[in-house]
Amino acid sequence: MKHSAFLSRPLDARSPVPQGFATFVASAGIRNHTRDIAVVHAEVPCAVAGVYTRSHFAGAAVRASRTQLAKGSARALLVISKNANVATGVQGEADLDLLLETLSQELAIAPDEIQTAATGVIGKRLPVERIAACLAETRERLSRPPDFLSFAEAIMTTDTTRKAVAMRVGKSVLIGVAKGVGMIEPDMATLLVYFFTDARIAQPALQSMLAQVADRTFNCITIDSDTSTSDSCVALSSGLAGPVETNAFADALLDVASHLAMLVLRDGEGVTKVFTTIVEHAESDAVARAVAKSIANSPLVKTAIHGADPNWGRVAMAIGKCDRKFRIDPQRTRISICGTCVYPAADEAALAALRGTMAAAEHIELRVDLAAGHGRAEAWGCDLSPAYVELNSHYTT
Rank of each mutant, 00 (worst) to 15 (best):
R141A: 15
L142C: 13
L142V: 10
S143E: 15
S143D: 10
R144T: 12
R144M: 04
P145D: 14
P145V: 01
P146R: 08
P146K: 07
F148T: 02
F148G: 01
F148M: 03
L149N: 07
L149D: 03
A152S: 15
A152F: 11
I155N: 01
I155P: 00
T157I: 03
T160W: 04
T160V: 01
T160F: 04
R162K: 11
A164L: 10
A166D: 00
M167W: 08
V169N: 05
V169K: 06
G170D: 13
G170K: 11
K171E: 15
S172A: 15
I175H: 06
G176M: 12
G176Q: 13
V177I: 15
V177H: 12
V181K: 08
G182D: 02
I184S: 09
E185W: 00
E185N: 11
P186L: 03
D187H: 11
D187T: 08
T190E: 09
L192D: 04
V193I: 13
V193M: 12
V193A: 14
F195Y: 15
T197M: 04
T197D: 07
T197E: 04
T197S: 14
D198C: 06
R200N: 13
A202L: 10
Q203Y: 03
Q203C: 14
P204C: 09
P204W: 04
P204G: 01
P204I: 09
A205H: 11
A205S: 14
L206R: 05
L206D: 13
Q207F: 08
S208L: 13
L210H: 11
A211D: 14
A211I: 06
Q212V: 00
Q212E: 14
V213N: 07
V213D: 07
V213R: 09
A214Y: 03
D215Y: 05
D215H: 12
D215W: 01
R216C: 06
R216K: 15
N219W: 02
C220L: 13
I221A: 10
I221M: 13
I221E: 06
T222P: 00
I223M: 11
I223D: 07
D224N: 06
S225L: 11
S225V: 09
S225H: 13
D226K: 10
S228H: 08
T229F: 02
T229A: 03
S230P: 09
S232Y: 05
C233T: 15
C233N: 14
V234W: 01
A235L: 12
L236Y: 02
S237Q: 06
S237K: 04
S238T: 15
G239V: 08
A241H: 10
